[in-house]
C-alpha cells in the first residue's frame, strides 16, 4: 500500500493501481476538509455577527 512496505515495486501495475487509489482518496479527503473548514469558518463568522 505504501512505498515503504517491502512488497512495493515501482512498476506500472503499482503506479496505476495505487495512483488511482490515492487520487480518489485525495479528492475525497480534500473535499471533506474544504467542507469542514468552510463550515467552521462560517459558523464562527455567524457567531461573531450575532454578538454585535
Amino acid at each position: 500500500m505504501f512505498p515503504f512496505c517491502f512488497e512495493w515495486v515501482w512498476d506500472m501495475s503499482h503506479i496505476v493501481f495505487m495512483g488511482g487509489l490515492w487520487y480518489a482518496l485525495g479528492i475525497v479527503g480534500a473535499g471533506l476538509t474544504y467542507c469542514i473548514v468552510k463550515a467552521a469558518k462560517e459558523s464562527s463568522d455567524n457567531h461573531s455577527n450575532g454578538d454585535h
Partner: peptide
C-alpha cells in the same frame, strides 16, 4: 447547530 447546518450546505454544494 450552525456548524452542522453549514457543513451540510457545503457538502451539498460539492
Amino acid at each position: 447547530k450552525p456548524f452542522f447546518h453549514h457543513l451540510s450546505h457545503n457538502m451539498h454544494e460539492i
